[in-house]
């Protein structure tokens, strides 16, 4: 899906847990997430902690979208 939206002309950041699949299928901007059933959350945390976790992940995604890339890039930091 990532690839087709990008083909349509938009930069896409793929936020997913299983980074190897994302790399295999060909996403260009990848942000690793928490776990498959809750990529952007963690039920073990308090609501506020969870929001903070989500903010950090979104910050990474925004950074990915504003970074020029030449090849498939995983934004770990």
């Amino acid at each position: 899906m990532v690839k087709e939206i990008e083909r349509a002309g938009l930069p896409v950041v793929h936020m997913c847990t299983v980074v190897p699949i994302s790399l295999t299928v060909g996403a260009n901007r990848i942000v690793p997430t928490v776990a498959i059933p809750h990529p952007l959350g963690n039920p073990a945390l308090s609501i506020e902690e969870e929001k903070e976790l989500r903010r950090k992940l979104i910050d990474k995604a925004l950074k990915a979208l504003t970074t020029e890339v030449e090849e498939q890039t995983v934004f770990e930091q």
């Binding site: 899906m1 950041v13 936020m15 995604a61």
Partner: peptide, 10 residues
């Protein structure tokens, strides 16, 4: 007129 996409997967 969207500029960028965040796509989330599980």
């Amino acid at each position: 007129g969207v500029d960028a996409v965040i796509l989330t997967s599980t």
